[in-house]
Design a protein around this nucleic acid. Structure first.
Length: 682
DNA sequence: CTAGGGTTAG
């Protein structure tokens, strides 16, 4: 326990105690939380009722009975309600029966911190000190956490240092809180320094501190450092627990490193650490994200078999998995079945379903799910609205989308920058550039400052409408307004300049970008490579491709498609095919475009059998042929005068639900055959 | 004091 003997608190005693009474925001907030959810409000009302009854019981129950109720209320996030109950305690020192303990003060501080009023938290500390209470470890830990959680990390560190200087011995929780705050703010380096400081202090770091930093490193994809800490903790005799492993597995899954993740799973097995609902959910989510829904289903059975009950989060991932595959009926069924499994729908569950319907071109269903959630007393979040706005815009229903920010405001939600950017993008994409520009100005009037993304959207809008000079104008305007361009800005402009044939300016921009400390990314390379090939600069393209590695940029499938296409067009079909075969070794999956490019190249090199084999292979690889694939095959066979096989493909495409404009395909291909093929295929 | 699910631009 900590020693407070010489601990000097004078610097807090001067703080003003907050007025608990008659704070309008407290009343408003309590009202809101009571109405948030029926089931919840019932427990809240019960708790408040019991609390008030206890106040008038004779004799009054001991204080810990009251704080127990307060803890329940706080656990359910009814902070304002807790504070309004705490005001019943006697802070004036006239009623010895209702004399608060330091624990009551701590709860009040915690509540104020959660209500984003850390300043009131400090005022409570001031009052406690003045009344002669000794703040305990929890008091300061709560305040430090409050500062960390309210973007006042710097003050948290200052408080920590000041406390230490005044003789306060931080506990492992104090260190842990600060390490967590540093990690969440992205300063993992300082977190590691603090971890090292713990080593020489009276409380050495534990599993929690290591796990916290490991998680933060994984989230930032710094796996080398994460694994180093992981090894270090094991070397120090600290056994990683299920949380530590789960953090690492999560990180590895996020970069599709399945083998490494599986290795950790077997290590867990060897150490007799069982997977919990978090671990299973992460694995299931990763499978769903990759479209591996059958495996996700098996994993669900496995977890149930092992006695781990899936929860709302688990189901959310599965539902999203079905949505991603367009299986909305299954998604909906699963959604409905959650109730039978005693799983509640969260606002995120609804958001997933709404997005699923929107993306599968079922915006009316999305809207009806939205109304459903309101009827179920689930309060739509900012994300709900933003998702709906995207859906409405994609469905071309701009008027409705533009109304939603007003509806949000009437429900107490503030549209954020992404709300506005979505609308801005929708306007500029749909040849309403003038309206987009007006909207951009109105954002500022609404008190929402345009972000880099806002500028990027307009720059793209101008570029794609042959107004590259206006785009360049926006570019200089953004810097003037204190918004720094990012890689996307440069990529958009470079692409626009290429499109306008202003190659030299594009080149200049690309070096300007580097001088600003921005590194070209995969899109930059793809944009430039594409243009080089289009302009027949094959050698230059090839040497640029070879420099990608120096910039730590790994070619993706778009890059390879571009290279394969370029090789085919310059007659190097064998080299192109070699590259095609090397894709899996690069960890890349060919997509429809890859197959189309390669098949076209093979057809033009009169390698029809090879082309046909690829056509069959793409289906076996789960990549379905589109209209272009059929067109390439048909034209290939016509060029080779293999009319029967051409007709075969025309019929296949017509039977295969591919919307094919056969007549268009045949245009320019052997006119005399035109009639013959068309008549036989009908 | 540590872990999982939902939204915007190239």
């Amino acid at each position: 326990m900590m020693t407070m003997m010489k601990f000097n608190l004078s610097f807090y005693a001067s703080r003003k105690f907050p007025l608990f009474f008659n704070r309008p925001y407290i009343i408003a907030a309590s009202f809101h939380s009571i109405n948030r959810n029926c089931k919840d409000s019932k427990t809240l009302q019960d708790a408040v009722y019991t609390f008030n009854r206890m106040l008038y019981r004779n004799p009054v129950p001991p204080i810990p009975e009251f704080t127990k109720i307060l803890s329940v209320i706080v656990k359910r996030n009814h902070f304002a309600a807790a504070i309004s109950l705490i005001k019943h305690f006697d802070f004036l020192g006239v009623n010895p029966v209702l004399k608060p303990t330091i624990y009551v003060f701590n709860i009040a501080i915690n509540c104020f911190c959660h209500l984003k009023r850390v300043d009131f938290g400090f005022a409570v500390l001031g009052k406690a000190t003045k009344l002669g209470y000794q703040p305990d470890c929890a008091t300061f830990n709560t305040l430090i956490r409050g500062l960390c959680g309210n973007d006042k990390l710097h003050q948290a560190i200052k408080l920590f240092d000041r406390l230490v200087k005044n003789g306060f011995e931080p506990s492992v929780v104090t260190y842990g809180t600060l390490i967590n705050g540093l990690c969440k703010s992205g300063d993992t380096r300082s977190a590691v320094v603090l971890l090292q400081n713990m080593e020489t202090s009276t409380c050495p770091p534990g599993i929690i501190q290591y796990s916290c930093i490991i998680d933060s490193l994984c989230k930032r994809k710094r796996f080398v450092e994460a694994l180093k800490l992981f090894t270090e903790m094991k070397r120090k005799g600290l056994s990683p627990n299920v949380v530590t492993y789960t953090c690492l597995i999560h990180g590895l899954c996020s970069i599709h490193s399945w083998d490494e993740a599986l290795e950790l799973l077997s290590e867990m097995h060897a150490r007799n650490i069982s997977l919990n609902v978090h671990t299973f959910s992460i694995l299931l989510d990763a499978l769903c994200k990759e479209g591996r829904i059958t495996e996700a289903e098996s994993l669900l059975s496995l977890m149930i078999q092992r006695g781990v009950t899936p929860n709302t989060v688990t189901y959310n991932s599965l539902i999203r998995g079905y949505c991603l595959l367009g299986k909305m009926d299954v998604a909906r069924k699963l959604f409905d079945s959650m109730v039978d499994q005693h799983c509640t729908h969260s606002v995120i569950t609804y958001n997933i379903l709404i997005k699923g319907y929107s993306e599968n071109k079922k915006i009316d269903e999305a809207l009806s799910v939205f109304h459903e959630m309101c009827n179920e007393d689930i309060v739509p979040s900012l994300v709900t609205y933003n998702t709906l706005i995207i859906g409405l815009c994609q469905a071309g229903r701009f008027e409705e989308a533009l109304l939603l920010p007003y509806e949000m405001k009437s429900h107490g939600l503030t549209p954020d920058i992404s709300t506005y950017n979505t609308l801005l993008d929708a306007l500029s994409k749909n040849t309403k550039l003038d309206e987009a520009v007006k909207f951009f100005d109105s954002m500022i009037d609404q008190g929402c400052m345009p972000s880099v993304m806002s500028y990027n959207i307009l720059i793209k809008g101008y570029s794609e409408n042959e107004k590259i000079d206006e785009a360049l104008n926006m570019f200089s305007k953004m810097s003037k307004n204190g918004v720094n361009p990012n890689v996307v800005t440069y990529n958009t402009l470079i692409s626009g300049l290429f499109h306008a044939g202003r190659l030299e300016e594009a080149r200049m921009l690309s070096s300007d970008m580097k001088s600003r400390g921005l590194k070209p990314d995969i899109v930059t390379f793809n944009t430039i490579l594409n243009t080089l090939y289009k302009n027949g600069k094959v050698e230059e393209a090839r040497s640029l491709f070879n420099t990608m590695d120096d910039d730590d940029v790994v070619p993706d499938i778009v890059t390879c498609n571009c290279i394969i296409d370029g090789m085919c067009k310059s007659g190097e079909t064998d080299e192109a095919y070699g590259m095609f075969l090397s894709l899996s070794a690069r960890g890349l999956q060919p997509n429809v475009r890859t197959y189309n490019i390669m098949i076209d190249g093979l057809c033009k090199a009169s390698e029809l059998d090879k082309a046909n084999t690829l056509f069959l292979e793409m289906k076996a690889n789960g990549c379905s042929a589109d209209e272009i694939t059929y067109k390439i095959m048909v034209q290939g066979f016509i060029r080779a005068k293999q009319t029967t096989r051409a007709i075969e493909f025309i019929n296949r495409s017509l039977n295969g639900n591919v919307s094919a404009d056969v007549k268009k395909w045949l245009n320019g291909c052997c006119p005399p055959m035109d009639q013959k093929i068309l008549s036989s295929s009908n």
